[in-house]
Design a protein around this nucleic acid. Structure first.
Lengths: 232, 232
DNA sequence: CAACATACGATACGAACCGTAATGTAATGA
DNA sequence: TCATTACATTACGGTTCGTATCGTATGTTG
């Protein structure tokens, strides 16, 4: 569980009866229970309120609606990951896969996809989803990658954010669309491909492509929509 | 537009008044219009029926509900991509990115994420979503990758499906969570990283990791959760 | 201690959908 | 012709939503 800070939007003025923290907690807990037992579609505000021993208006006093409530509940369960730092780049990246996997292990991809779908149309909720669920893992793994670059283990010219996207997106994709999460053996394969590269001889591929491009420029029909920057 | 085959589940018996193809088409068209104008949340069956000039029961005669309707409508708009085959591996993979992008350009990631969220809990709809929206692009790009392997442009030991996942997942991820789709320049970066690899010296990283592992095995405290297969 | 402001439980209301059922009429095939 | 199914129309019961209205409880401020 992360810090209890701001799971609930702050109350309005200072005066008056303060909100019950117990109700805050009970609502979040009830939401998580229902998510686990019945999934996202089972979360009706009536059901949440009933299980929490309170009523619907109490929810609306705290959140703008179902989506915001679920987002807060999910955030309450997620850990803030800390970046691996073993000094061994391969091991660190291996651990990084687990960091990305963390969200999907504790929440269930079905819930996350439904939650995101509801968040996406609203800029504020969408930003909150990204900040809560996507960013922490990226930040942690990002630090790890930075250290690997500092050590000189990764190419200097590397696009760090892109590498981050590759790792994060693969795990997200597999969580959503595959029957099973990425296993250890597959993770190792993935790391190998990312670090070693898929090409047998990359410079040769570039050379070939450029040769075709010149050929195309000199008047013939073959089309090449894709352009190469000069190799450094 | 793909083939009109089986956009609508087949009618029951042979006898009786046949379904109106015009109504089929009008419903699909109305659904797509509403998706474009108001997004997924705007698609109520009442609204679709009204715009199509018919009524709700006519929808239920054809589909099991809103999710199946939208899935059919989306499928109607998607092209079945054909695999690039220019003989230039770099160019083909570049085109492959565009194939994956195709779905997200014609449908809007918000709609797709909401649709998937609704499909996911139902095994049949989920399978249909995968077969309709995910698989065609994968199949097309898969053929392209196979040819690249045949040409010897990719490592022989490569995991073709994993490479497919890397490309597909990156584009999916960016479509969902980034403000903008992957651009040409970024795609080129991505291809470069995938083919060339991110490591400066991959064998050295493996060697280092293995050295640490031996050290750990010989009794000291350092933990290594990750195991290496023998290098071939 | 008094006044005020807000949360709380309980309840109710209108609106929007949903999924289905019941009509009578239209269109096809046997 | 007769059986069968689609069609438009209308209606029903059910669920959930978001909000409103109470009287009561629990704090803070003067």
């Amino acid at each position: 569980m992360s810090d209890a800070v701001s799971l609930v939007p702050a109350a309005k003025g200072a005066g008056g009866r303060p909100r019950s923290q117990q109700i805050d907690d009970a609502l979040v807990a009830a939401t998580l229970e229902i998510l686990d037992e019945e999934g996202y579609p089972g979360v009706s505000l009536e059901a949440v309120a009933k299980r929490a021993g309170t009523t619907r208006p109490a929810i609306y006093r705290r959140w703008s609606g179902r989506t915001a409530l679920v987002l807060a509940a999910v955030a309450a369960r997620l850990d803030i990951p800390s970046p691996p730092d073993t000094g061994c780049t391969l091991c660190d990246i291996d651990e990084s896969f687990n960091i990305f996997l963390g969200s999907y292990r504790t929440i269930s991809p079905e819930v996350l996809s439904a939650l995101y779908a509801d968040c996406a149309p609203d800029p504020e909720l969408r930003a909150q989803y990204l900040a809560t669920i996507i960013e922490p893992a990226r930040t942690a793994v990002g630090h790890t990658l930075d250290r690997a670059v500092d050590r000189g283990d990764l190419r200097e010219t590397i696009d760090r954010d892109l590498l981050l996207d590759f790792v994060g997106s693969l795990i997200h994709y597999r969580a959503m669309f595959s029957p099973e999460h990425l296993g250890d053996a597959e993770a190792e394969h993935a790391i190998e491909m990312l670090l070693q590269g898929a090409a047998g001889d990359y410079p040769a591929l570039v050379a070939h492509s450029e040769a075709l491009e010149h050929e195309a420029l000199s008047g013939t029909a073959t089309r090449h929509h894709h352009h190469h920057k000069a190799q450094q």
